[in-house]
Simulated scan of single mutants.
Amino acid sequence: MPKIKTHRGTAKRVKVSANGKVTHRHQFSGCGHILSKKSRNRKRKFRKDQAVFSGDLKRFAPQIPYLL
């Protein structure tokens, strides 16, 4: 049986935490430009990684077989 290829685009965007949770950066974070209209609290929340939802994890699982 051949090895399963990892989807490189997914592997670059997703990582597994120490507790086994799959995390990713916030979508629509927009922390690169037009920061003056965004609140300090909002920008601070964008810094942290976010856990992948269980429905999305079912899609990601075949793409990253060796990370999970």
Rank of each mutant, 00 (worst) to 15 (best):
F53P: 09
R25S: 09
Q27P: 06
L35R: 09
P65C: 02
I34K: 09
C31R: 12
A11R: 13
H33W: 08
V14R: 13
L67Y: 00
H7T: 07
V14P: 00
L68S: 08
K38F: 01
G32Q: 03
V52P: 01
L67Q: 05
M1A: 05
R40M: 11
N19L: 08
N19K: 15
R47V: 13
R59D: 04
D56L: 12
Q27V: 12
R44G: 04
R47I: 10
T23W: 10
G20H: 03
H24R: 13
I64T: 03
R13E: 07
S54P: 05
V22W: 06
R42K: 11
K37A: 08
K12L: 03
V52N: 02
Q50A: 10
V14I: 15
G55M: 05
Q63I: 05
P65T: 04
K15P: 00
D56I: 06
P62A: 10
R13P: 03
N41C: 02
D56A: 11
K48N: 15
I4M: 05
K37I: 12
F53T: 13
G30C: 03
N41D: 03
G55C: 08
L68K: 14
K45L: 14
D56N: 15
F60I: 15
C31K: 11
S17D: 12
F28S: 09
S36L: 06
V16E: 04
R59K: 08
K58M: 06
D56P: 01
C31W: 10
K38E: 07
N41Y: 06
L57V: 02
F60H: 09
H26W: 04
R44T: 04
L67K: 02
I34A: 07
G55F: 11
D56K: 09
I64V: 15
T6Y: 02
N19A: 15
H24C: 12
K38R: 09
K48Q: 15
R8Y: 06
D49F: 03
R25N: 13
M1C: 02
I64W: 01
T10R: 05
T23Q: 14
R40L: 11
K21Y: 00
K43E: 07
F46D: 14
Y66F: 13
Y66R: 07
K45S: 10
H26N: 12
F60R: 05
L35G: 06
K5T: 09
D49Q: 01
V52C: 03
T10N: 03
P62G: 06
F60S: 02
G30V: 02
V22K: 12
D49P: 00
P65A: 02
I64P: 00
K37P: 00
I34G: 01
S54I: 08
K12Y: 03
C31G: 13
F53N: 14
G9D: 10
N19D: 15
L67W: 00
